[in-house]
Amino acid sequence: MEDEVDRLVAAWRRERPDLDVEPLEVLSRVSRLARHLDRARRLAFAEHSLEPWEFDVLTSLRRTGPPYQLSPGQLLTQTLVTSGTMTNRIDRLAQRGLVERLPDPSDRRGVLVRLTTEGQDRADRALAGLLTQERAILGELSDRQRNELASLLRQLTAPFDNVPG
């Protein structure tokens, strides 16, 4: 079975035989797959009236377990955005009734962001929709193939995830 990357690689081998274009065999496919995944995720989130960034914040809170709350600083760490961006996101989610701000009992000046019942429900439904989309993307891969692919991708991504700062 030939795909667009096969055609791209063949063209570069013809036009630039002096270059080793082998990395394109893997990384161009990863890039194309990422675009398809982004479209599928946006569709899954839109079905639940969520933007991708809203899903990220809501599911960061949801994964913590009861009482589903984090400090804004903890949310920053999990979502990799600036404090100004996070403040704006929390404001917008609070206006929609998906999160609420509460005083932090361990810090008089601090606040905690807690998932509301509606926020939890929306996050849960969007996650279920996302998993349906992702299963479709994985298609006919066997359990063994999925595990092998996950292991290989982990080898590529782990060094980026474990770099300080």
Results as ranks from 00 to 15, higher is better:
80 L>P: 03
41 R>K: 13
76 L>R: 14
57 V>K: 01
44 A>K: 08
44 A>I: 06
61 L>A: 08
82 T>A: 04
58 L>G: 03
56 D>K: 13
50 L>A: 09
52 P>C: 06
34 A>P: 04
81 V>P: 06
82 T>Y: 08
79 T>K: 02
66 P>L: 10
37 L>V: 15
43 L>M: 14
42 R>P: 07
71 S>N: 02
83 S>F: 11
36 H>E: 15
60 S>A: 11
63 R>Q: 08
74 Q>T: 01
37 L>Y: 12
31 S>W: 14
77 T>F: 11
59 T>K: 09
81 V>Y: 05
52 P>G: 06
72 P>Y: 04
43 L>C: 09
42 R>A: 10
73 G>L: 13
72 P>S: 03
80 L>C: 08
65 G>A: 00
70 L>S: 04
83 S>I: 06
57 V>S: 00
54 E>Y: 02
80 L>M: 10
78 Q>N: 11
73 G>A: 13
32 R>A: 13
83 S>H: 13
31 S>D: 15
45 F>C: 02
37 L>R: 14
73 G>F: 14
65 G>V: 00
46 A>T: 09
51 E>F: 08
68 Y>S: 02
41 R>A: 14
39 R>V: 11
31 S>L: 15
84 G>N: 05
41 R>M: 14
81 V>G: 04
65 G>Y: 00
48 H>V: 08
45 F>I: 01
68 Y>K: 01
61 L>F: 08
40 A>F: 07
37 L>A: 15
65 G>N: 00
81 V>C: 07
49 S>K: 15
84 G>P: 01
62 R>N: 05
32 R>G: 11
67 P>Y: 01
49 S>F: 12
57 V>L: 07
84 G>M: 03
46 A>N: 07
70 L>A: 05
32 R>T: 09
72 P>N: 00
48 H>L: 10
